[in-house]
């Protein structure tokens, strides 16, 4: 871990028009780090990630990525500077084949790196097996792997990962967690993980932020984020 700040967010306010969902968020992610954002349903976790990738425009505050102010960049430009987005509910393109989904993912890395299909297939062999199958016919766990692979192929420096465990069999959840940890260790990609699954948070994250009503209400260090009791208490808040 290089210890350089990759993402820094300050005073971020935003939402869907009307009363802002995010009420001034400050957080940062270092290069190569896995950081969790935890909190109950409806507190604004997804809104935060959508604002970070640029699908929602902030009302106030700044977002800096790799030393550059990206606050006013549209989503496609933010993807191209190295922010990968794996949305809640996965949002694979259902009528495109698995390999076509990955091909769309190449766009983010175009001009910055060569798409590394070997690595994606190495992490998620099922994607190679099902390469020609329509993505909409995959199981939830397979779609989650495809959504991660689709972000990986664009060679991100930071992955925004929104509730990867939602609606997925427990056995697959742990497998996906291991894959993301291995990816982080091997490629140094940083991960901002939004989760409510206790096991996943404890096994993956090295630091955490607790969000409630659009604000960061607690910061969890390495000891706290790996303690099931502490995390459980914050999830139940």
């Amino acid at each position: 871990m290089a210890g350089e700040t990759l993402l820094s967010v300050s005073g971020l306010r935003g939402g869907y028009g009307g009363k802002p969902v995010l009420q001034g968020i400050d957080l940062s992610v270092e290069e190569g780090e896995i950081v969790a954002v935890i909190g109950r349903n409806g507190v604004g976790k997804t809104t935060l990630l959508k604002t970070l990738i640029g699908l929602l425009s902030p009302m106030d505050g700044t977002i800096r990525f790799a030393g550059e102010d990206v606050t006013s960049l549209p989503a496609d430009k933010r993807a191209k500077v190295g922010i990968g987005y794996i949305p809640q509910g996965r949002e694979v393109f259902p009528r495109l084949s698995v390999s076509e989904n990955l091909m769309v993912g190449e766009t983010a890395g175009a001009g910055r790196s060569e798409p590394n299909y070997q690595r994606v297939y190495d992490f998620f062999p099922i994607l190679k097996e099902r390469a020609r199958q329509a993505a909409g016919t995959l199981s939830g766990g397979q779609q989650q792997q495809l959504a991660i692979g689709r972000a990986m192929i664009g060679a991100p420096r930071l992955m925004l990962l929104d509730e990867p465990s939602e609606g997925i069999q427990p056995s697959i959840v742990q497998e996906i967690a291991n894959n993301v940890k291995r990816l982080n260790a091997e490629t140094g990609v940083a991960v901002l993980l939004v989760e409510q699954n206790l096991d996943l948070i404890v096994s993956m994250a090295r630091r955490g932020f607790v969000i409630d009503k659009g604000r960061i209400v607690a910061k969890l260090g390495p000891e706290e984020i790996t303690s099931r009791d502490v995390v459980r208490r914050h999830l139940a808040l």
Partner: peptide
């Protein structure tokens, strides 16, 4: 392929770097 992805989910395509 990119055009079909854009039609299916323009926001998602943008988030993957597509200039929709």
């Amino acid at each position: 392929v990119i055009a079909r992805a854009t039609i299916a989910a323009p926001q998602m395509a943008r988030a993957l770097g597509v200039d929709t």
